[in-house]
């Protein structure tokens, strides 16, 4: 009951923020508010028990996105030009789409309804009841993500890689700013950040490997890793960071992450299994083979983490090193 109340309030917040963002011409305010928006949605995810999603949302939505958007705002104006199309159009779009969505909820099973087919289906049952015996990993989400639907995750990793490639393609050859943005002349920030960075990295490693047991995994860890470097780049300067993590190497890491993932799959082929069939890893022919699953998941998670980390950092580099037009 209480949870319901909290949820409703949080949703109210969301509506309000969305409307305010929609009406605001001030982009800085919009960025700030969208940071808040993603924090609230992360809270909602937590309440809905989708902790892995909440994790990602917090790391990407509230953290890295805000950073990148700030950088972009820095490169352009923070005032939005008045819209060209009639104002009624966006409303129309929202009403129509919203109408359909609302209509869709009519026959929707109630949230958490145990009778809902989604909870009854063969698929869900298999995930819930067989995943541990098959992979010895308590966090079902990780098993589903990295093994059952590992191919999707390969795809998602590729999406990240694609995004990185896209950015490199578009911004690959930008002139670097002649006058680097001023350093923050604040020793507190500097020291605080410097102290924090190792812990962030450590925490990232924790997230990477703790994924088997709790919320976490390659995606979140990658972002955390990148966040540490981003922090470094912000409090010192991106050029300093480049020395620690040269752009070229980072770019290659993006590719390597995907390759690592795919290589695991292909190795499975060579071992006589299907693509991404971890059972054949460390195999003595038995099935299910939790060891194989385990090592497979570990490796692909590493691949994911690598790609996400490198991609995030690349994005940061590309934007942060770009001079104001």
């Amino acid at each position: 009951m209480i949870i319901h109340g909290i949820t409703i309030i949080l949703f109210l917040f969301l509506y309000v923020i969305a409307i305010v963002i929609g009406r605001s011409r001030n982009l800085f305010a919009a960025v700030m508010l969208s940071g808040i928006f993603s924090l609230i949605s992360a809270c909602l995810f937590v309440i809905m028990d989708a902790v892995d999603v909440a994790f990602t949302e917090a790391a990407v939505g509230a953290g890295v996105s805000t950073v990148l958007m700030m950088i972009v705002l820095n490169l352009t104006s923070d005032r939005e030009s008045p819209p060209v199309q009639p104002k009624v159009f966006p409303l129309l779009v929202a009403l129509l789409t919203g109408g359909v969505l609302i209509y869709a909820t009519k026959d929707m099973p109630a949230f958490g309804d145990p009778e809902a087919l989604i909870h009854q289906s063969q698929t869900t049952n298999h995930y819930l009841w067989h995943s541990f015996e098959e992979s010895h990993i308590p966090n079902v989400v990780t098993t589903v993500l990295a093994s059952y639907r590992g191919y999707d995750t390969l795809g998602e990793t590729t999406v990240v890689f694609t995004a990185a490639v896209a950015v490199m393609l578009l911004l690959g050859h930008v002139r670097e700013s002649e006058t680097p943005p001023k350093l923050i002349n604040d020793p507190i920030a500097l020291v605080g950040a410097k102290m924090l960075i190792p812990y962030i990295l450590l925490f990232a490693l924790y997230v990477q490997f703790h994924g088997d047991f709790g919320p976490g995994g390659g995606f979140q860890a990658g972002v955390m890793f990148a966040a540490a470097f981003v922090l470094h780049g912000m409090v010192l300067s991106p050029k300093h960071t480049l020395k620690a993590a040269p752009a070229l190497i980072i770019e290659k890491l993006v590719a390597l992450g995907v390759l690592l993932y795919a290589a695991v799959g292909i190795y499975c082929l060579f071992k006589g299994g299907n693509f991404l069939e971890y059972d054949v890893l460390l195999s003595h022919g038995e099935k299910p083979n939790p060891h194989g699953q385990h090592i497979g998941i570990l490796l692909v998670e590493a691949g994911v983490g690598l790609t996400v980390f490198a991609a995030m950092l690349t994005l940061f580099y590309k934007f942060a090193l770009r001079g104001k037009a």
């Binding site: 289906s121 063969q122 698929t123 298999h126 995930y127 093994s147 059952y148 639907r149 590992g150 191919y151 999707d152 299994g273 299907n274 693509f275 991404l276 069939e277 971890y278 059972d279």
Partner: peptide
């Protein structure tokens, strides 16, 4: 039918 990851159709892809 090609089972990716060796999983059954209703489990995997």
């Amino acid at each position: 039918t090609y089972l990716i990851g060796g999983w059954d159709p209703h489990v995997g892809i």
